[in-house]
């Protein structure tokens, strides 16, 4: 029964959600919205589990003085600090400290991590764009054409390059993307059917 009940729940709810897509009646919509609301509620409770997991792992590392245990102190300080600053009786999310840490720590850190992409793209491109084979050469040339389309110093060549870049984006690139997306779509349907029919049970933590 330990396995059968979850499989039954998955089958019934999966079937309902599949049928609901075709039934616009407000009763079916209300049930769908009810399920969505419960998804949020379950997610919030799961967040509590996640926070507990992080606290437990960090405290264990500090207690055992595992290598680099100091980073665990930073994790806990950051997490509890923002929670305390955001408490409503201390001003909530518009309090000076919360806003300060959000504006001057969190936003710059997020933006900085995203900015690392520029450097990593350079090193990845440098490593990957080598004319090893004919196809790799095509990739290399396409990359060069596309990067040059932003360059304002090409003069009249710039218009031709822009047109070629647009063709590369709108024809072969889009065709390949669409093919991958069609394959993904069929894969999603197949995997969803496998989950609903109980063939795929990886989400239950077992085969």
């Amino acid at each position: 029964m330990k396995k059968e009940i979850p499989l039954l729940i998955v089958f019934v709810s999966g079937l309902f959600m599949a049928v609901q897509f075709f039934v616009p009646h407000s009763t079916s919509e209300k049930i769908y919205e009810f399920v969505m609301e419960w998804t949020i509620i379950i997610g919030i409770f799961a967040l509590a589990l996640g926070i507990w997991s992080l606290i437990r792992v960090s405290v264990n590392r500090i207690r055992r003085r595992t290598p680099n245990w100091q980073y665990s102190i930073v994790i806990l300080a950051g997490m509890f600090g923002m929670v305390i600053f955001g408490l409503s009786f201390l001003g909530g999310v518009r309090s000076y400290m919360f806003r300060h840490f959000f504006d001057y720590v969190m936003i710059p850190l997020h933006a900085t991590m995203f900015s690392l992409l520029a450097f990593f793209i350079a090193s990845a491109a440098f490593r990957a764009f080598r004319a090893r084979t004919a196809l790799a050469t095509v990739l290399l040339l396409s990359a060069l054409i596309l990067m040059l389309r932003f360059n304002p110093y090409l003069g009249p060549l710039g218009d031709q390059d822009a047109a070629l870049a647009a063709w590369i984006l709108n024809v072969p690139n889009l065709a390949a993307k669409r093919a991958i997306i069609i394959g993904i779509g069929l894969g999603i349907v197949a995997t969803a059917l496998k989950v609903i029919l109980g063939i795929e049970r990886g989400y239950m933590g077992s085969d």
Binding site: A46, L47, A48, I51, S53, Y203, S206
Partner: peptide
Amino acid sequence: CYDPIVMTIAQETVKTGYYN
């Protein structure tokens, strides 16, 4: 893990792997 629900499923999955 990035998502707490994913974490709980992943914990079960890994535990079952060790058990198997």
